[in-house]
């Protein structure tokens, strides 16, 4: 990214300014959900949508790139990817200086992953969207589960929405969303070769 005022260059992955007058500064990352139009309309009927000129075809203009496992980046990548394939999708976040990534395949099987007992990355069963939240004190170290109702701490009888973090049942505050980056493994691993991978 480039800011128009100083022409400084910024990383999309972690918001760090890499070059220019603002070098070293970092943008705050905010939580964003990956979802679909139908799901978003159902979950947030009062929301608004970015307008666009037309309906368009029912796929990305770059679908060929997304579908081809051998195409990684503009120039291609030759690297030891280790634990996953390059175009496998992961969900990445950091706690302090330690990067973590959760493989999409893991979430499809297990529905959630706790990160350092401080955060949880959870896949909504209905939509497949992935969100991350800070864990409240009553959930840290406790067994969690994901049911059709939501993210549950059985011992405390608390249930939260996996889509929004809102409390569905029990006496607990809503979960605080945290930013999680959706990326191809080759990209995340390039930025964070020391990442702890949940897969």
């Amino acid at each position: 990214m480039q800011d128009m005022e100083t022409k400084s260059l910024w990383s999309q992955i972690n918001g760090e300014c890499l070059e220019g007058d603002l070098k070293g500064k970092r943008l705050d990352q905010v939580a964003v959900r990956h979802t679909t139009y139908a799901e978003f309309k159902s979950d947030f009927p009062e929301a608004v949508m970015l307008t666009k000129p037309e309906l368009g075809p029912a796929q990305s203009p770059y679908q060929n790139y997304f579908d081809d496992p051998s195409r990684m980046g503009i120039f291609g990548r030759v690297m030891d990817l280790q634990k996953l394939e390059g175009k496998d999708k992961v969900f990445g976040l950091s706690i302090g200086n330690q990067a973590y990534a959760v493989a999409e395949s893991y979430l499809k099987e297990h529905h959630f992953a706790t990160i350092g007992e401080k955060m949880v990355v959870v896949m909504d069963e209905k939509s497949g969207s992935v969100s991350a939240f800070n864990l409240p004190e009553e959930a840290k170290g406790e067994k969690l589960s994901v049911t059709a109702d939501g993210l549950t701490v059985p011992i405390a009888n608390v249930v939260w929405s996996t889509a929004t973090g809102a409390v569905i049942n029990g006496d607990s505050p809503a979960l605080e969303p945290v930013s999680v980056v959706t990326a191809y493994w080759f990209a995340w691993f390039s930025f964070f070769p020391e990442t702890v991978l949940v897969h």
Binding site: V32, R33, H34, T35, Y37, F44, V48, M49, K52, T164
Partner: peptide, 30 residues
């Protein structure tokens, strides 16, 4: 930005979005 009533003709149901959910407003971006 437009409401869903206007967006229905511009979006496919399965169209992937980035959704920003704020305290006062929520917005979707294809």
């Amino acid at each position: 930005f437009i409401p869903f009533s206007a967006a229905d003709s511009l979006y496919h149901d399965e169209e992937p979005l980035l959704a920003m959910v704020g305290t006062q407003e929520s917005r979707g971006y294809s």
